[in-house]
Simulated scan of single mutants.
Amino acid sequence: MFYSEAGARPRTWEASPSEHKKWVEVFKACDEDNKGYLSREDFKVAVVMLFGYKPTKIEADSVMSSVNPNTSGLSLEEFLSIVRKKKEVQLHQSEIRHIFTAFDRHYRGYLTLDDFKKAFKQVAPKLSERTVLEVFREVDQDSDDFVSFKDFEYAMKCGQNEA
């Protein structure tokens, strides 16, 4: 409901040519023996280079289990697809944080019903107060009359899946 009422929609995203080139360069740099694929350890180094963190064992296992069984590692196309998806998630999370911050006009780290009313009055002035209240109640997962970033993020992600 939150997405359909607020009018938000997940966006498709494409890498710029320079970003794509950087990803290919990282792949080549991490493919130490020019074998044409990244091993598990090569993949971890590539993620550190591109995203600044070492992937967890679970993340590395997940990626490596998706590799074509006829190869010994992650091909360039598979790597580019994974990096694009990770970048989309990163941008989406940043967008959610930005929206939450815009709603949190008093910088308290949580939103009240009044914050919702003011924000919706700005972005959707014809939306009824009853609808805004329904959205607030839906987003306020623990019904404590405060919407934390975690509540907000969860609602935004659920809304994306329903859209």
Rank of each mutant, 00 (worst) to 15 (best):
M1Q: 07
F2P: 04
F2G: 02
Y3T: 04
Y3C: 05
S4C: 01
S4I: 09
E5I: 11
A6T: 13
G7I: 06
A8N: 10
R9W: 01
R9D: 00
R11N: 15
W13M: 13
A15G: 07
A15T: 07
P17G: 06
S18A: 06
E19G: 04
H20L: 13
K21A: 14
K21T: 08
K21P: 00
K22R: 12
W23N: 06
V24Q: 08
V26G: 00
V26W: 00
F27P: 14
F27G: 04
K28M: 05
A29C: 05
C30V: 10
C30S: 07
D31Y: 09
D31L: 08
E32A: 08
E32H: 10
E32T: 13
D33Y: 11
K35P: 01
G36H: 05
Y37S: 07
L38H: 05
S39G: 09
R40F: 04
R40V: 11
R40H: 11
E41N: 15
D42H: 03
F43C: 12
V45G: 04
A46K: 11
V47K: 07
F51S: 12
G52V: 06
G52C: 03
Y53R: 12
K54R: 06
T56M: 04
T56W: 08
T56R: 02
D61Q: 09
D61T: 01
S62E: 07
V63H: 06
V63K: 08
M64C: 04
S66K: 08
V67F: 14
N68I: 03
P69G: 11
N70P: 02
N70F: 13
S72N: 15
L74W: 10
S75W: 09
E78N: 06
E78Q: 15
S81Y: 14
K86L: 04
K87V: 06
E88W: 10
V89H: 13
Q90M: 14
Q90Y: 13
S94N: 15
S94E: 15
S94M: 11
R97V: 12
R97T: 05
R97G: 03
H98K: 15
I99K: 08
F100Y: 07
A102C: 10
F103H: 09
F103W: 07
D104T: 02
Y107R: 15
Y107S: 09
R108M: 06
L111I: 03
T112A: 13
D115T: 04
F116S: 03
K117R: 12
A119N: 09
A119Q: 06
F120E: 02
V123A: 14
V123Q: 05
P125R: 13
L127P: 00
S128T: 14
E129S: 09
R130P: 00
R130N: 07
L133M: 13
E138Y: 03
D140I: 02
D140W: 02
Q141I: 08
D145Y: 08
D145Q: 11
F146E: 04
F146P: 01
S148E: 12
S148A: 05
S148N: 12
K150T: 15
K150F: 06
E153L: 00
K157I: 14
A163G: 02
